[in-house]
Protein backbone atom coordinates (compact mmCIF):
# COMPACT_ATOMS: atom_id res chain seq x y z
CA UNK A 1 0.00 0.00 0.00
CA UNK A 2 2.80 2.42 0.73
CA UNK A 3 4.44 2.39 -2.71
CA UNK A 4 1.21 2.93 -4.60
CA UNK A 5 2.55 6.23 -5.94
CA UNK A 6 4.45 4.37 -8.65
CA UNK A 7 1.27 3.36 -10.42
CA UNK A 8 -0.39 6.74 -10.40
CA UNK A 9 0.37 9.52 -12.84
CA UNK A 10 2.75 11.99 -11.37
CA UNK A 11 1.20 15.46 -10.96
CA UNK A 12 2.99 18.19 -12.85
CA UNK A 13 4.49 19.97 -9.90
CA UNK A 14 6.00 16.79 -8.61
CA UNK A 15 7.34 15.89 -12.03
CA UNK A 16 9.06 19.22 -12.44
CA UNK A 17 11.05 18.53 -9.33
CA UNK A 18 12.05 15.09 -10.50
CA UNK A 19 12.90 16.03 -14.04
CA UNK A 20 16.54 15.66 -14.82
CA UNK A 21 17.03 12.53 -12.80
CA UNK A 22 18.28 10.61 -15.76
CA UNK A 23 19.86 7.24 -15.67
CA UNK A 24 23.50 6.40 -15.94
CA UNK A 25 26.50 8.40 -16.96
CA UNK A 26 26.83 11.05 -19.64
CA UNK A 27 26.58 9.53 -23.11
CA UNK A 28 29.69 9.18 -25.23
CA UNK A 29 30.39 11.26 -28.29
CA UNK A 30 29.68 8.32 -30.58
CA UNK A 31 26.31 7.66 -28.93
CA UNK A 32 25.54 11.36 -29.17
CA UNK A 33 26.13 11.38 -32.93
CA UNK A 34 24.16 8.19 -33.55
CA UNK A 35 21.29 9.42 -31.39
CA UNK A 36 21.22 12.76 -33.18
CA UNK A 37 21.01 11.04 -36.55
CA UNK A 38 18.16 8.87 -35.33
CA UNK A 39 16.32 11.80 -33.76
CA UNK A 40 16.58 13.87 -36.92
CA UNK A 41 15.27 10.95 -38.97
CA UNK A 42 12.29 10.59 -36.64
CA UNK A 43 11.68 14.33 -36.71
CA UNK A 44 11.60 14.33 -40.50
CA UNK A 45 8.99 11.55 -40.63
CA UNK A 46 6.90 13.50 -38.15
CA UNK A 47 7.22 16.75 -40.04
CA UNK A 48 6.92 15.39 -43.57
CA UNK A 49 3.09 15.20 -43.83
CA UNK A 50 2.70 18.51 -42.02
CA UNK A 51 5.14 20.29 -44.31
CA UNK A 52 3.40 18.75 -47.27
CA UNK A 53 0.00 20.14 -46.26
CA UNK A 54 1.38 23.57 -45.58
CA UNK A 55 3.29 23.62 -48.85
CA UNK A 56 0.17 22.59 -50.79
CA UNK A 57 -1.80 25.34 -49.09
CA UNK A 58 0.63 28.05 -50.18
CA UNK A 59 1.43 26.68 -53.64
CA UNK A 60 1.05 29.69 -55.94
CA UNK A 61 0.11 27.69 -59.05
CA UNK A 62 -3.45 26.96 -57.91
CA UNK A 63 -3.53 23.46 -59.45
CA UNK A 64 -6.09 20.81 -58.56
CA UNK A 65 -3.53 18.27 -57.34
CA UNK A 66 0.21 18.49 -56.80
CA UNK A 67 2.37 17.12 -59.64
CA UNK A 68 5.56 16.56 -57.70
CA UNK A 69 7.19 16.69 -54.33
CA UNK A 70 7.49 20.37 -53.73
CA UNK A 71 7.93 20.87 -50.01
CA UNK A 72 9.14 24.43 -50.33
CA UNK A 73 7.26 25.91 -53.28
CA UNK A 74 8.84 28.85 -55.01
CA UNK A 75 6.83 32.00 -54.45
CA UNK A 76 4.31 31.39 -51.70
CA UNK A 77 0.77 32.61 -52.17
CA UNK A 78 -2.08 32.94 -49.74
CA UNK A 79 -4.66 32.72 -52.53
CA UNK A 80 -6.02 29.39 -51.30
CA UNK A 81 -6.55 30.85 -47.84
CA UNK A 82 -8.27 33.88 -49.29
CA UNK A 83 -10.50 31.64 -51.39
CA UNK A 84 -11.69 29.44 -48.52
CA UNK A 85 -12.16 32.34 -46.15
CA UNK A 86 -14.11 34.33 -48.72
CA UNK A 87 -16.35 31.41 -49.66
CA UNK A 88 -15.90 28.35 -47.44
CA UNK A 89 -18.99 26.56 -48.81
CA UNK A 90 -21.69 27.14 -51.38
CA UNK A 91 -24.11 27.88 -48.57
CA UNK A 92 -24.89 31.39 -47.36
CA UNK A 93 -22.68 31.33 -44.30
CA UNK A 94 -19.37 33.09 -43.80
CA UNK A 95 -16.16 31.67 -42.41
CA UNK A 96 -16.57 33.69 -39.23
CA UNK A 97 -20.08 32.36 -38.66
CA UNK A 98 -18.92 28.79 -39.24
CA UNK A 99 -16.15 29.34 -36.71
CA UNK A 100 -18.58 30.89 -34.23
CA UNK A 101 -20.89 27.86 -34.44
CA UNK A 102 -17.92 25.52 -34.01
CA UNK A 103 -16.88 27.41 -30.90
CA UNK A 104 -20.43 27.32 -29.54
CA UNK A 105 -20.72 23.56 -29.92
CA UNK A 106 -17.25 23.02 -28.50
CA UNK A 107 -17.82 25.23 -25.45
CA UNK A 108 -21.19 23.69 -24.64
CA UNK A 109 -19.75 20.18 -24.93
CA UNK A 110 -16.77 21.09 -22.76
CA UNK A 111 -18.95 22.69 -20.06
CA UNK A 112 -21.55 19.92 -20.00
CA UNK A 113 -18.90 17.21 -19.88
CA UNK A 114 -16.95 18.94 -17.16
CA UNK A 115 -19.91 19.74 -14.89
CA UNK A 116 -21.70 16.44 -15.16
CA UNK A 117 -18.54 14.36 -15.33
CA UNK A 118 -16.74 15.85 -12.32
CA UNK A 119 -19.77 15.45 -10.04
CA UNK A 120 -20.22 11.83 -11.06
CA UNK A 121 -16.49 11.10 -10.87
CA UNK A 122 -16.27 12.48 -7.37
CA UNK A 123 -19.20 10.39 -6.20
CA UNK A 124 -17.77 7.25 -7.78
CA UNK A 125 -14.34 7.85 -6.32
CA UNK A 126 -15.11 9.01 -2.80
CA UNK A 127 -18.62 8.04 -1.80
CA UNK A 128 -19.78 4.52 -1.20
CA UNK A 129 -23.22 3.36 -2.04
CA UNK A 130 -25.08 0.41 -3.41
CA UNK A 131 -24.55 -0.30 -7.07
CA UNK A 132 -21.26 1.57 -7.33
CA UNK A 133 -19.46 -1.33 -8.99
CA UNK A 134 -22.32 -1.95 -11.40
CA UNK A 135 -22.37 1.70 -12.32
CA UNK A 136 -18.63 1.78 -12.95
CA UNK A 137 -18.87 -1.19 -15.28
CA UNK A 138 -21.87 0.36 -17.00
CA UNK A 139 -19.98 3.60 -17.63
CA UNK A 140 -16.98 1.67 -18.92
CA UNK A 141 -19.12 -0.44 -21.21
CA UNK A 142 -20.89 2.58 -22.66
CA UNK A 143 -17.52 4.18 -23.26
CA UNK A 144 -16.66 1.35 -25.58
CA UNK A 145 -19.72 1.53 -27.78
CA UNK A 146 -19.05 3.90 -30.67
CA UNK A 147 -21.37 6.87 -30.93
CA UNK A 148 -22.28 5.87 -34.49
CA UNK A 149 -24.47 3.13 -33.13
CA UNK A 150 -26.78 5.52 -31.29
CA UNK A 151 -27.70 7.80 -34.20
CA UNK A 152 -31.22 6.55 -34.95
CA UNK A 153 -32.64 6.61 -31.41
CA UNK A 154 -30.90 9.91 -30.60
CA UNK A 155 -32.29 11.44 -33.77
CA UNK A 156 -35.84 10.45 -32.95
CA UNK A 157 -35.43 11.51 -29.34
CA UNK A 158 -33.91 14.94 -29.98
CA UNK A 159 -36.33 15.70 -32.79
CA UNK A 160 -39.27 14.94 -30.51
CA UNK A 161 -38.30 17.79 -28.17
CA UNK A 162 -39.83 21.00 -29.50
CA UNK A 163 -40.25 24.51 -28.22
CA UNK A 164 -43.02 26.58 -29.73
CA UNK A 165 -43.73 25.91 -33.38
CA UNK A 166 -40.33 26.24 -35.00
CA UNK A 167 -37.56 25.34 -32.56
CA UNK A 168 -36.62 21.68 -32.51
CA UNK A 169 -33.85 20.51 -30.20
CA UNK A 170 -32.47 18.05 -32.73
CA UNK A 171 -32.15 20.77 -35.36
CA UNK A 172 -30.08 23.07 -33.16
CA UNK A 173 -26.51 23.56 -32.05
CA UNK A 174 -27.57 22.63 -28.52
CA UNK A 175 -29.01 19.34 -29.78
CA UNK A 176 -25.80 18.43 -31.55
CA UNK A 177 -23.79 19.40 -28.47
CA UNK A 178 -25.94 17.13 -26.30
CA UNK A 179 -25.46 14.23 -28.70
CA UNK A 180 -21.70 14.78 -28.70
CA UNK A 181 -21.69 14.95 -24.91
CA UNK A 182 -23.28 11.49 -24.82
CA UNK A 183 -20.05 10.30 -26.41
CA UNK A 184 -17.58 12.31 -24.30
CA UNK A 185 -19.15 11.84 -20.87
CA UNK A 186 -18.23 8.20 -20.15
CA UNK A 187 -14.52 8.76 -20.81
CA UNK A 188 -14.58 11.97 -18.78
CA UNK A 189 -16.16 10.22 -15.79
CA UNK A 190 -13.79 7.29 -16.05
CA UNK A 191 -10.69 9.43 -16.44
CA UNK A 192 -11.62 11.95 -13.72
CA UNK A 193 -12.50 9.19 -11.30
CA UNK A 194 -9.13 7.61 -11.95
CA UNK A 195 -7.40 10.89 -11.22
CA UNK A 196 -9.38 11.72 -8.07
CA UNK A 197 -8.53 8.22 -6.81
CA UNK A 198 -4.87 9.25 -6.75
CA UNK A 199 -5.41 12.42 -4.72
CA UNK A 200 -4.52 11.80 -1.05
CA UNK A 201 -7.56 11.92 1.23
CA UNK A 202 -5.97 13.64 4.23
CA UNK A 203 -7.09 17.15 3.28
CA UNK A 204 -10.66 16.05 2.74
CA UNK A 205 -10.76 14.19 6.02
CA UNK A 206 -9.42 17.23 7.82
CA UNK A 207 -12.06 19.42 6.20
CA UNK A 208 -14.76 16.92 7.16
CA UNK A 209 -13.61 17.10 10.77
CA UNK A 210 -13.88 20.89 10.52
CA UNK A 211 -17.51 20.47 9.50
CA UNK A 212 -17.38 20.98 5.75
CA UNK A 213 -20.10 19.16 3.84
CA UNK A 214 -19.53 16.99 0.77
CA UNK A 215 -20.34 19.74 -1.67
CA UNK A 216 -17.93 22.16 -0.03
CA UNK A 217 -15.23 19.49 0.05
CA UNK A 218 -15.82 18.79 -3.64
CA UNK A 219 -15.81 22.43 -4.71
CA UNK A 220 -13.01 23.83 -2.54
CA UNK A 221 -10.68 20.90 -1.97
CA UNK A 222 -11.05 18.25 -4.64
CA UNK A 223 -11.57 20.46 -7.67
CA UNK A 224 -8.50 22.66 -7.09
CA UNK A 225 -6.37 19.54 -6.64
CA UNK A 226 -7.76 18.05 -9.83
CA UNK A 227 -6.71 20.94 -12.06
CA UNK A 228 -4.79 18.85 -14.60
CA UNK A 229 -7.64 16.44 -15.16
CA UNK A 230 -10.08 19.33 -15.45
CA UNK A 231 -7.90 20.85 -18.13
CA UNK A 232 -7.82 17.55 -19.99
CA UNK A 233 -11.54 16.97 -19.74
CA UNK A 234 -12.36 20.47 -20.90
CA UNK A 235 -9.88 20.20 -23.74
CA UNK A 236 -11.07 16.79 -24.94
CA UNK A 237 -14.65 18.02 -24.75
CA UNK A 238 -13.72 21.05 -26.79
CA UNK A 239 -11.91 18.92 -29.40
CA UNK A 240 -14.85 16.53 -29.64
CA UNK A 241 -17.14 19.45 -30.40
CA UNK A 242 -14.66 21.11 -32.73
CA UNK A 243 -14.10 18.05 -34.94
CA UNK A 244 -17.63 16.66 -34.84
CA UNK A 245 -19.36 16.29 -38.20
CA UNK A 246 -21.32 13.09 -37.87
CA UNK A 247 -24.26 14.25 -35.78
CA UNK A 248 -24.08 17.75 -37.29
CA UNK A 249 -24.58 16.49 -40.84
CA UNK A 250 -27.38 14.20 -39.74
CA UNK A 251 -29.17 16.73 -37.53
CA UNK A 252 -28.69 20.30 -38.70
CA UNK A 253 -30.80 21.69 -41.52
CA UNK A 254 -30.25 25.45 -41.36
CA UNK A 255 -27.05 26.64 -43.01
CA UNK A 256 -26.84 29.32 -40.32
CA UNK A 257 -26.02 26.54 -37.82
CA UNK A 258 -23.30 24.85 -39.87
CA UNK A 259 -19.76 24.41 -38.53
CA UNK A 260 -16.18 24.36 -39.77
CA UNK A 261 -15.98 20.58 -39.44
CA UNK A 262 -19.07 20.16 -41.60
CA UNK A 263 -17.48 22.30 -44.29
CA UNK A 264 -14.29 20.28 -44.02
CA UNK A 265 -16.21 17.00 -44.27
CA UNK A 266 -17.85 18.37 -47.41
CA UNK A 267 -14.41 18.91 -48.93
CA UNK A 268 -13.16 15.46 -47.92
CA UNK A 269 -16.14 13.59 -49.38
CA UNK A 270 -15.51 10.90 -51.95
CA UNK A 271 -16.83 12.85 -54.91
CA UNK A 272 -15.44 16.20 -53.88
CA UNK A 273 -13.75 18.29 -56.53
CA UNK A 274 -12.13 20.74 -54.15
CA UNK A 275 -8.60 21.57 -55.27
CA UNK A 276 -6.13 20.06 -52.84
CA UNK A 277 -4.61 23.46 -52.17
CA UNK A 278 -7.94 24.78 -50.87
CA UNK A 279 -8.52 21.67 -48.80
CA UNK A 280 -5.02 22.07 -47.35
CA UNK A 281 -5.59 25.72 -46.51
CA UNK A 282 -8.92 24.96 -44.85
CA UNK A 283 -7.39 22.05 -42.93
CA UNK A 284 -4.64 24.29 -41.63
CA UNK A 285 -7.21 26.88 -40.54
CA UNK A 286 -9.32 24.29 -38.72
CA UNK A 287 -6.34 22.58 -37.11
CA UNK A 288 -4.43 25.62 -35.87
CA UNK A 289 -6.69 26.64 -32.95
CA UNK A 290 -6.83 23.16 -31.41
CA UNK A 291 -3.18 22.46 -32.14
CA UNK A 292 -2.14 25.70 -30.50
CA UNK A 293 -4.24 25.08 -27.40
CA UNK A 294 -2.93 21.52 -27.25
CA UNK A 295 0.67 22.60 -27.36
CA UNK A 296 0.04 25.25 -24.69
CA UNK A 297 -1.73 22.82 -22.36
CA UNK A 298 0.53 19.90 -23.20
CA UNK A 299 2.04 19.46 -19.74
CA UNK A 300 -1.36 19.50 -18.05
CA UNK A 301 -2.87 17.15 -20.57
CA UNK A 302 -0.23 14.51 -20.13
CA UNK A 303 -0.44 14.77 -16.35
CA UNK A 304 -4.23 14.69 -16.47
CA UNK A 305 -4.57 11.47 -18.39
CA UNK A 306 -5.23 9.41 -15.31
CA UNK A 307 -4.25 6.18 -16.89
CA UNK A 308 -4.12 4.34 -13.60
CA UNK A 309 -7.87 4.74 -13.66
CA UNK A 310 -8.35 1.53 -15.60
CA UNK A 311 -8.14 -0.22 -12.25
CA UNK A 312 -11.83 0.68 -11.77
Amino acid sequence: MTTVTVARPIPVEEKAVRAGTKGGRQITFKTQILSQIFCIAVASTVLFPLLWVVSMSIDPRNIAKPDGLNLIPSGASLAAYQAVIAKPTLNPISFVELARNSIEISVIVALLTLTLGSLAAYALSRLHFHGRQVLMIAVLAVLMLPAVATLAPLYVLLYSIKLGTTWVLGNSILGVAIAVTAGTLPFAIWNMKGYIDTIPRELEEAAAVDGANKLQIFLFIVLPLAKPVIAVTAFFGFIAGWTEFYFSWAFLQHPADFTLSMALKGMVGQYGSTPWSEFAAFAVLVAIPVSAVYLLLQRYIVAGLALGGVKG
Binding site: T89, W249, K265, G266, G269, Q270, Y271, G272
Partner: peptide
Amino acid sequence: LDIPFSDLFSKFETAAAT
Protein backbone atom coordinates in the same frame (compact mmCIF):
# COMPACT_ATOMS: atom_id res chain seq x y z
CA LEU B 1 -28.95 24.50 -49.35
CA ASP B 2 -25.85 22.81 -50.74
CA ILE B 3 -25.22 19.35 -49.27
CA PRO B 4 -22.11 17.26 -50.05
CA PHE B 5 -23.20 14.66 -52.59
CA SER B 6 -21.99 11.79 -50.42
CA ASP B 7 -24.33 12.90 -47.62
CA LEU B 8 -27.29 14.09 -49.67
CA PHE B 9 -29.49 10.99 -49.91
CA SER B 10 -28.74 9.77 -46.42
CA LYS B 11 -29.51 13.14 -44.87
CA PHE B 12 -32.70 13.56 -46.85
CA GLU B 13 -33.91 10.07 -45.99
CA THR B 14 -33.35 10.41 -42.25
CA ALA B 15 -34.85 13.89 -42.19
CA ALA B 16 -37.87 13.11 -44.36
CA ALA B 17 -38.65 9.89 -42.49
CA THR B 18 -38.95 11.86 -39.25
